[in-house]
């Protein structure tokens, strides 16, 4: 459809009618919109209860108890009244939380747990990346075929085509199942089998992220410029040689970007997995709440988790910038 510099009304009209349209996209939009709006009518959202006086009183009491314990004192009617804010008192209390963890409970200190959270996330994402590198080659349509990067070779005999199709399909199913399972549920199931404080968290994160990184890596391979690989193939290079010398260097920068994005998520998830009783900040958050409702300490550890997450985001942004500059 060509339009002259001064399009007439009818030309514009024809252009408008020839615009790309898809019934699938329209139906999807309608369904999705219906789902979003309809959920508010289907769900048992009791607004009267959510904003009742009881809830307001709960919130009021919670906000009182979030104030660090040493900065409160028994008032005339026996409840704890806030004392004037004192940074010194707060500092001592915060330091105790960093070294001793939850007061009167046998937990590691906040600093140790924070480092543990980081360690879990780092080990998990490194393991996930290593595993996904193995998977991605077998999931990529361009590489996992009988005659990769040989456009003029003609179709391979059907048994080999079928064999590769099976390999590719199986790899994709493994990846999709890995990423469909929430980390928390994986860790919950693994914890019952492996009674070490860190492995269930590491493995749960590694399994879920291997599925995601593997899919993304396979897509990156499929979208990579095929010309160097075709040239190598024409010179007689094997599939492995092509993968290692032509594809790997081409996709590395993008893979590193994905890697760091996923690591940011891993730090968040690693914090939470501690709630199951694993060696991360979540453990302290859960202990503080379950044992005697120490909301001041719970909020402190959630704040510590925020610091870790923000530090991770910053580190990841720096690393991604280094990778981007280099490529």
């Amino acid at each position: 459809m060509s339009v002259s510099a001064h399009a007439t009304e009818s030309e514009l009209d024809a252009l408008w009618r020839a615009r790309p349209r898809s019934r699938f996209v329209r139906v999807s939009f309608a369904l999705f919109g219906l789902l979003l709006v309809g959920s508010w009518f289907v769900g048992d959202f009791d607004f009267a209860d959510s904003f009742s006086d009881t809830r307001a009183r709960n919130l009021d009491r919670f906000l009182d108890e979030v104030r660090p314990y040493p900065l409160r004192a028994p008032g005339p009617d026996g409840t704890l009244e806030p004392l004037p804010w004192d940074w010194g008192v707060f500092g001592t209390w915060a330091q105790q939380r960093l070294t001793d963890g939850v007061s009167d409970r046998d937990t590691p200190g906040g600093l140790e747990s924070a480092l543990g959270t980081l360690a879990i996330s780092v080990l998990a994402i490194v393991l996930a990346a290593l595993a996904s590198l193995v998977f991605c080659g077998f999931a990529a349509r361009t590489l996992a075929t009988p005659r990769p990067f040989a456009p003029h070779a003609g179709p391979a005999p059907w048994p080999r085509r079928l064999a590769w199709q099976v390999v590719r399909g199986a790899t994709r199913i493994v990846l999709i199942v890995q990423r469909s399972m929430p980390e928390y549920i994986l860790a919950f199931l693994l914890l019952a089998m492996l009674r070490t404080p860190a492995w269930p968290a590491v493995l749960a994160l590694a399994i879920h992220n291997c599925g995601i990184l593997g899919r993304l890596a396979a897509e990156t391979i499929e979208n990579a410029d095929p010309r160097p690989a075709v040239a190598l193939r024409a010179l007689g290079a094997s599939r492995t040689t092509i993968a290692l010398t032509s594809i790997a260097p081409a996709i590395l920068p993008r893979l590193l970007t994905y890697f760091f994005y996923r690591w940011e998520t891993c730090v968040r998830e690693a914090t939470v997995l501690g709630i199951l009783g694993l060696a991360s900040l979540g453990w302290l958050i859960d202990e503080a709440q379950v044992s005697g409702f120490r909301y001041d300490e719970m909020v402190f550890f959630i704040g510590l988790g925020m610091v870790i997450v923000l530090a991770g985001d910053l580190l990841s942004a720096i690393a991604r910038r280094i990778v981007r500059r280099a490529s």
């Binding site: 048992d44 919130l59 919670f62 906000l63 928390y184 939470v272 958050i285 988790g305 925020m306 985001d313």
Partner: peptide, 19 residues
């Protein structure tokens, strides 16, 4: 910077269990 599960834990502590 706060995970949805931690927001949920916070809300549980602050107002109780409501959908």
């Amino acid at each position: 910077s706060v995970h949805e599960v931690l927001w949920a834990v916070l809300f549980l502590a602050a107002v109780g269990l409501t959908p």
